[in-house]
Design a protein around this nucleic acid. Structure first.
Lengths: 195, 195
DNA sequence: AACCTTCTTGACCGAATGGTCAAGTGGAGT
DNA sequence: ACTCCACTTGACCATTCGGTCAAGAAGGTT
């Protein structure tokens, strides 16, 4: 594809991606048809295929944008923080804040994890994100700030905590991301161990 | 539906559910057609609709069985154990062992969490499972064995740890459930805190 | 044997689906 | 005013989907 786009074109493209993302998040990827997307925007079907090769490519595009945006947000939250443990905490809080603000995109990421076609694309982004955390964990271990265990494992464990708590407490029960993030941080730092 | 089934009928039904479960797990619910399921078993389409009202009902049936089986396995692993913390640990290990042995069913549970249509059905089972853990957590807190925090939250956090580590380390990287379970238990009990 | 119920067949249905394309429209540059 | 090309249209296509149903086969009971 890779067309030359005018401003008008860029706007249309973004409009399609935004609208499709909400539909995908609401009713799922497969149940959302291309006809439905273009109808929702009041345009002809050809518009869709002018900007995207296929429905699948559109989804991948949205997914990539979402992952990039999340990572940007995390890095910018961490900023110049020197303490590795604090960097972990900041990244974790940023993830939850992002998930609260971008439900649609976050749901698509969760969905992509269950669909074979999208798993490889998803993993590219997920691996990058995990690598960031692993780096901080290693540094914290080297400084004796945290327990000496497999960095990869605790990094993934934290991802599991964040994503599941987000789903249950923020999405299903409508709790505030800040509050849930506090609890998630406490759990990751101390687990169940008594004070 | 609720037909009277002979042994032959019960076998056929089970055959359909088993085969459909592997297909659903492999390629997803929507991309798997009823025609494909019956073709895979070498039978006519009418056979499917003799045993099930719809594709959706079949999925819900498989889902319900999977959740029941998992719970049974957990309870039987816990047995008569008196120590609440130990009960949590045993349940957690049982979840991972089950997930390793029943990849297909576990994937369907993960998929169901992303599809609006199946979320309510899934939650019925998930709430029951969570309630079990919450009970143990409350008891452990009362005994001063673990930190005094929201029992619901730590229960869900542990679910998040288990399900994500299962996906990444057992499914994607083929590690042994025992080993991963050891690490998951350690993380849940102590978090990142130094020994 | 006849008979009843469980089970099986596969052609068929209407309603989608993702994707194409010849024919246009309209705004910017000259 | 004319040209150019980014954009838009919507009828159309092959294919597939979930689901139905009249017709019969298979097996047990009497």
């Amino acid at each position: 594809m890779a067309r030359r786009l005018t401003q008008r074109g860029k706007d249309r493209r973004e409009q399609l991606m935004t609208f499709a993302a909400t539909r995908f998040a609401e009713q799922g990827y497969h149940p959302t048809s291309v006809s439905e997307i273009v109808a929702g925007l009041g345009v002809g079907k050809g518009v869709f295929y002018w900007y995207f090769d296929s429905k699948e490519q559109l989804f991948l595009e949205i997914l990539k944008d979402a992952q990039q945006d999340l990572r940007r947000r995390q890095q910018q939250a961490i900023g110049e923080e020197a303490d590795p443990v604090q960097r972990i905490v900041l990244g974790l809080r940023a993830s939850m804040a992002w998930a609260e603000a971008h439900r649609d995109h976050n749901k698509l990421i969760q969905f992509a994890a269950t669909e074979t076609i999208f798993q490889t694309a998803l993993r590219r982004g997920a691996d990058i994100a995990a690598a960031d955390v692993v780096k901080h964990v290693k540094e914290a271990i080297a400084q004796g700030r945290i327990r000496d265990t497999d960095p990869e494992l605790v990094a993934q464990a934290m991802v599991g905590v964040v994503s599941h708590l987000t789903r249950v407490f923020i999405y299903e029960r409508g709790e505030a991301a800040d509050k849930v993030a506090d609890d998630a941080v406490a759990f990751c730092l101390e687990g169940l161990s008594p004070a």
